[in-house]
């Protein structure tokens, strides 16, 4: 009977642990968890962090969502907008361009022809300015928010957590999850920071303060 690589490696680890026995370790979790912050503070912190990472920030109440979105899209001359299948269509009531509803069957090169994409979001961490997308129907598959050059993302203030631990506990591990902190960037050429290499070069965030 041949010994598999799996058996060999597991046996090697057990040998290693026999040769250098481990000492038990308690994991100290004294870092900050379960933090809360008032709405105004979370909004201010998140806005600061998003702007610092060169994202565009728009703040509004829920009733103004369609106008604000239409303004952002008009300013960027978006004529072909991609949306995930579960997006709230009332958000688009003031937008005049063409809407392409994405599905798993849409070939990826067609996404490359879109001017931009509009989605919702799952959770957002204020302290790091990080938006978490979890591929729910209002956020769509991962390719949708990756291939087009503009991503307009709606964030409801009630989904904004102060820190990273509070955001991680809200995630569903089985969902494919993407963390976005500002637009794509590189510092590979002489350490000069450039926005936009492969992902969307513009990230516009619409924060709804009463949702």
């Amino acid at each position: 009977m041949t010994v598999t690589a799996r058996e060999t490696i597991l046996a090697r680890i057990r040998d290693a642990q026999a040769l250098a026995p481990a000492s038990a370790v308690d994991i100290p979790r004294d870092y900050r968890t379960g933090r809360t912050l008032p709405d105004a503070d979370r909004l201010a912190l998140l806005t600061d962090r998003l702007v610092d990472y060169k994202a565009e920030v728009h703040t509004c109440t829920a009733d103004r969502t369609p106008e604000v979105i239409a303004d952002v899209l008009r300013e960027r001359a978006v004529c072909h907008l991609g949306i995930p299948p579960g997006l709230d269509r009332t958000w688009l009531s003031a937008y005049e361009g063409e809407v392409h509803v994405d599905s798993a069957d849409t070939p990826v090169p067609e996404l490359d022809a879109l001017d931009g994409v509009l989605t919702s979001s799952a959770v957002t961490c204020a302290e790091t300015g990080t938006i978490f997308l979890d591929a729910s129907p209002d956020q769509g598959r991962r390719a949708l928010t990756l291939v087009p050059d503009l991503h307009v993302c709606v964030v409801d203030l009630s989904t904004v957590t102060p820190g990273v631990p509070e955001a991680v506990t809200r995630l569903t591990p089985t969902h494919p999850t993407t963390l976005i902190s500002g637009p794509s960037a590189t510092s590979d050429i002489e350490l000069e920071r450039l926005e936009g290499v492969h992902g969307p070069r513009t990230l516009a965030v619409v924060i709804r303060t009463d949702m």
Binding site: Y53, H175, P176, T177, L179, S181, P183, G199
Partner: peptide, 10 residues
Amino acid sequence: RMNPYTSLWT
């Protein structure tokens, strides 16, 4: 504070 993109998949 955070890198631009992190992917998690299962």
